[in-house]
Write a protein that binds this DNA or RNA. Structure first.
Length: 338
DNA sequence: CGGATTTGACCTGCGC
DNA sequence: GCGCAGGTCAAATCCG
């Protein structure tokens, strides 16, 4: 997926597009509504923009995420998506989309991730790595895991004949390896592992070079779902958690099946929200926004059908400026109605 | 007791 | 070829 070279956007010198509600929201401009949320996170509709796109050889495993991303990259596309005039789409940065191609091992490496985290506005930032695999300078190191399942017979041979195994390893080496699509999220949070609606099993933890914070490796617990995620804390901004998803879920989110808005936003990180009365009218809290990204990191990840044709009932019926709803969702952080 | 987490060992790929 | 770093495995341990 070649996100760079896409259309429009307020791209800074770091190659970051900054799109979000900025001063407009603070001054009572356009307000997010439940419909926006649906569009933002659940829509399967492509948001067309010019440029970008992958070459014929490039693996673009799904179109919806690409379109989804590109919708962010293109203010006009985002405007169409949100059904607002394009000039109303601000270029202030609350949501920053990293459209750079990530070098060595995506942005997940300590240095690269840290750099990205430092460059990006920490709150509510979304970083998408170039996921094509072929186009990347270096292949990923994952040989076990999914590949292991595919090569069970090979492994059996390997046990019987180590020499043969070596040959196979050499042969495999020559093969082009494909990297699964990766999507990274930068989230301000005090907790490392943010609740995202899926169940994960931790299978490893590694110290990251040049970072005081380890990187944790998680795998989706659902059988035959090979989705992995890495969680690490930015060493330059320890308050920022970098979550990188890799692969496609082959099932619905357990949380989405519950359809509970309360569960949707249930995350320890949310307890760090400032008092809601400090939020400007109509302002969609960036942390909350980020949590939603965490909950539905990638609409395209779900294989058919879409996980939720409609948002949870609570989201359909309320605006997020609805104080009563916020009180229901965040009783610990919501004082009585001001 | 079963599932999740921890953690050291191991594998792989890349740079020098 | 060697060392380094990322990524994974799997036994040990923890926990509800």
């Amino acid at each position: 997926m070649s996100c760079g070279g896409g259309g429009g956007g307020d791209q800074d010198r770091h190659g970051l597009y900054h799109l979000a509600r900025g001063d407009d929201a603070a001054t009572g401009g356009y307000q997010f509504s439940s419909n926006d949320i649906e569009s933002f996170f659940f829509s399967q509709q492509p948001v067309g923009i010019g440029g970008g796109g992958g070459s014929a050889d490039e693996i673009v495993p799904y179109s919806s995420i690409t379109d989804y991303l590109q919708g962010f990259l293109d203010p006009a596309g985002l405007a169409r998506h949100l059904d607002v005039p394009s000039q109303d789409v601000p270029t202030k940065h609350q949501l920053s989309v990293d459209v750079r191609s990530h070098d060595r091992d995506s942005q997940g490496t300590g240095s690269a991730a840290g750099e990205g985290a430092a460059l990006l506005t920490p709150k509510s930032s979304v970083s998408f790595s170039s996921s094509g695999g072929e186009g990347e300078g270096k292949s990923h190191r994952c040989k076990k895991g999914p590949a292991k399942e595919a090569d069970e017979e090979d492994l059996q041979d390997d046990e019987e004949n180590p020499k043969k195994a070596t040959n196979k390893a050499t042969k495999k080496k020559a093969e082009k390896r494909q990297r699964l699509p990766r999507v990274s999220f930068l989230t301000k949070s005090e907790v490392d592992h943010l609740e995202d609606g899926y169940r994960w099993r931790k299978y490893g933890q590694k110290a990251v070079k040049n970072s005081a914070y380890p990187r944790s490796y998680y795998r989706c617990t659902t059988p035959k779902c090979g989705v992995k995620k890495r969680v690490e804390r930015s060493y330059q901004d320890p308050s920022t958690v970098i979550t990188t998803y890799e692969g496609q879920h082959t099932h619905h989110s357990p949380a989405s099946l519950r359809g509970s808005a309360a569960h949707l936003f249930m995350s320890p990180g949310l307890h760090t929200l400032p008092p809601p009365h400090l939020m400007p009218p109509g302002m969609f809290h960036p942390d909350l926004m980020s949590m939603m990204h965490m909950q539905y990191p990638n609409p395209g990840m779900y294989l058919p059908p879409p996980p939720m044709a409609t948002p949870p009932a609570a989201l359909q019926q309320h605006h997020f400026t609805d104080y009563a709803l916020l009180q229901d969702l965040f009783p610990s952080t919501m004082p009585n109605n001001p």
